[in-house]
Simulated scan of single mutants.
Amino acid sequence: MRSTQSRADLYAVEEVEISSLSVGGSPRLAGESLEHVETLIASETELPPIIVHRPTMRVIDGMHRLLAMKRLGHRKIAVRFFEGSEDEAFVLAVKSNIAHGLPLSLADRKHAAARVVASHPEWSDRMIASVTGISAKTVAEIRKSANAEPPDGGGRIGKDGRVRAADVTERRRVAQELIIKDPGLSLRQVARAAGISPETVRDVRKRLRRGEDPLPQGRAKGAAGGQDADGRPARRTGIAEQPTPGSGSPPPPAVVVERLKADPALRFNENGRDLLRLLNIHALRTEDWSKIIDSVPPHCIEIVAHLARDCSKKWLEFASLVERNAMDPDFGPAGRP
């Protein structure tokens, strides 16, 4: 799926009369910042081309640059034209204004997300979050308030451009049948056939081995399954929910880590203390994780997400090695990959 930004970048720069441009429909609720305009004027550097929606001649990206050029007495300005629809033009305006220049305020981004949810209900929460610079959790709340779902109950389009069902309950059942019928199928083969992610297939397979239902406990029939439209585990409140104390579920991670801290086998050696420190860092409450998610600035989202996934891969590998040590005492450092 080619992005709207790349489509605008395909066009050559043209000189256009400033008087021919329209300036309505900005995603900035409070309008442009005169202080930022003065900053651009004082910089005395050549400003990059603005982006204009050709069918309407409306400025999509570059209102501050346009105002600066007007103040400097220029009659023309460098423009790249965008040929898409009005809805696509708005998406590009929002995406451009969180990527560079004066960032949109949180209120601007939430308002923009509500409009994008309405115009693109088939986009996943993470897809819209990547465009508007807010968290996927916040987008989910906006979607719920607006009651905006894909037409005809269809799937959602993830950031990778793939369509996945918003409700994967039945797809987990399909994966179950495929695994039972042919245990030799790989995770990816089952994932492709069932329309879910390999990680969800892995979870189904583990549940079958334990003699459990392929659906997570407590999830009603017909509720959203174990992955969202971006192929990641579904999330109700942000990071994985903590068990309720006294419900018979395992205690929260923070409680478990506190117990481990009292274990002499870990406390009285350097490697054990390193492990406790790492576990303690990740034993945050759901509310704390949500606050951290919402504090990630838009320009750092992709970097932070990449690092987080890299850390998760290392933890998964660590968990597998620890479990293998428990099952096979002879499996030591020499036998590890």
Rank of each mutant, 00 (worst) to 15 (best):
T138M: 12
A140C: 07
R143A: 09
A146F: 03
N147P: 00
N147L: 06
A148K: 10
P151I: 02
P151Y: 02
D152F: 09
G153D: 06
G154D: 04
G154N: 10
G154E: 07
G155N: 05
G155F: 04
R156E: 15
R156C: 04
G158M: 08
G158F: 07
G158D: 09
K159S: 12
D160P: 01
V163Q: 08
R164G: 03
A165P: 09
D167R: 11
V168Q: 08
T169V: 00
R173G: 01
R173V: 01
E177Q: 07
L178H: 05
I179N: 00
I179L: 04
D182H: 04
G184E: 10
S186Q: 03
S186G: 12
L187A: 10
A191T: 05
A191F: 11
R192Y: 02
R192C: 00
A193N: 04
A194G: 05
G195F: 02
G195Y: 03
I196Y: 01
E199F: 08
R202S: 11
V204L: 12
K206E: 14
R207P: 08
R207H: 12
R207C: 05
R207G: 08
R209D: 15
G211H: 12
E212Q: 15
E212R: 14
D213W: 07
D213Q: 05
Q217W: 03
G218C: 04
A220E: 11
A220V: 07
K221W: 08
A223Y: 05
A224G: 05
G226F: 00
Q227S: 13
A229G: 15
D230T: 03
D230V: 03
G231S: 09
R232T: 04
R232G: 05
P233T: 06
A234W: 12
R235L: 09
R235Y: 02
T237H: 06
P243Q: 09
G246T: 01
G246R: 00
S249C: 10
P250Q: 14
P251G: 11
P253V: 07
A254I: 12
V255S: 13
V257A: 10
V257G: 12
E258H: 14
R259D: 15
R259P: 02
K261N: 13
A262P: 06
P264I: 13
P264Y: 15
P264N: 14
L266T: 04
R267L: 14
F268G: 10
N269S: 13
N269R: 13
E270A: 15
